[in-house]
Design a protein around this nucleic acid. Structure first.
Lengths: 134, 134
DNA sequence: TTGTTGGTTAGCCATGTAGCAAACTATAAC
DNA sequence: GTTATAGTTTGCTACATGGCTAACCAACAA
């Protein structure tokens, strides 16, 4: 569990490059050899291999050599790990938004209560608070 | 719509650094001044400011100077954009897995049908196909 | 066995990134 | 007005990254 976090550095760094993202996208559609993967890119093979290597180090891709051809496949755990990070942040962010919304609501009610001297000054900190929608 | 994609480079590059991820996480909990943000890090201010700058360029963070203090806040669009990328990839990946599963199922049934000459060789490409569950 | 194919290693270069210290600017605070 | 505070600008290192060529190795194919 402690080993998962350092991988995020590598995963995000790997995905920061458009070539590597394209490789990942390609591999989502199924495994492929290095040559097949490299073909769409106007790049020398050694340069391309570096990208493959970065992807392997990040854990996003696994590869295996059989004969003289190396076959690459996606290893989704790393992808999922990164996605989890986003969801976690979003959860925190949204929780805060909800709290903020509740706070604004409370301010509004207090202000309203201050204007009109007598009314329901109770039931302030109460709000369904459902963000979502996507 | 075409301008969204190049931003991914910057967003992922920004998140590849643990310091910057920590800043983002901190900002999920609410806005803060540069000084407040920098305080937990054992790092000279100019170095820290570079990280802030990278985050701003990526669109993850917005900041505004009032008086002599610069206040930073998260700008969630970029975060959501990156999250969307993952979800998109995962959708493709899972669709493929489902197809693969169906394919294996079909192979199995064909094999079974070959062994036993007479049985339901129909209804092969049919499967609820719900991956999920991690 | 002699090519040819598919990948790999080694070495080089340009650029980018992460860090520093030092000096500077502009706004509070006294 | 002087001083402290909060950032900012300006160099400067060191190292990582992305690209190349050239040479190399290890399977097939003829």
């Amino acid at each position: 569990m402690a080993n998962q976090q350092p991988r995020l550095d590598q995963v995000f760094a790997a995905l920061a490059d458009p070539t590597r993202r394209a490789i990942v996208m390609r591999l989502c559609a199924g495994e492929a050899s290095v040559g097949e993967l490299a073909e769409p890119f106007d790049m020398a093979l050694p340069s391309f291999m570096k990208h493959i290597h970065v992807l392997e180090l990040s854990g996003l891709v696994q590869s295996e050599k059989s004969g003289r051809v190396r076959t690459c496949r996606l290893s989704p755990e790393a992808l999922v790990g990164a996605e989890d990070w986003f969801q976690h942040q979003r959860a925190i962010w949204e929780a805060r938004l909800d709290r903020f919304e509740a706070y604004v609501m409370k301010l509004k009610q207090e202000k309203a209560a201050a204007k009109r001297p007598a009314k329901t000054t109770e039931k302030t900190t109460n709000k369904p608070s459902k963000r979502k929608g996507t």
